[in-house]
Design a protein around this nucleic acid. Sequence first.
DNA 1: TCAGTGACTGACC
DNA 2: GGGTCAGCCACTG
Length: 111
Amino acid sequence: MKPENKNFFQKVYEVAALIPEGRVTSYGAIAKYLGAARSARMVGWAMNGAGSMPEVPAHRVVNKIGLLTGKHHFDGTNLMQQLLENEGIKVVDNQIMDFEKHFWDPFKELG
DNA sequence: TCAGTGACTGACC
DNA sequence: GGGTCAGCCACTG
């Protein structure tokens, strides 16, 4: 990715970086928080570039039902799941258990 | 330049 | 209640 990440991507990284340990959020939640609720795909694309950013925990961003749809973009086949489990989040069959309980809402947490 | 694709989501049938 | 469709926009061939 290019270093000159524009506003949108930059904000996606900024929000994602604020996700506390042991918590997760969805692409749509971030997109909506940025005022681009219908551009959730862009958030996903941004995560693609976030792979090179250690401050951006892309593994804490999943789809709205808590499914690890982006796990294939991580090095290991189960790396994403392992990272989440390492933070106390239980993952079964690529899906986060008690997703609502671990859900981190940008609106609620950031205003 | 055009068309296809994708780490999504909400609406519709 | 599940399958399908359209919209979103950046990137690639």
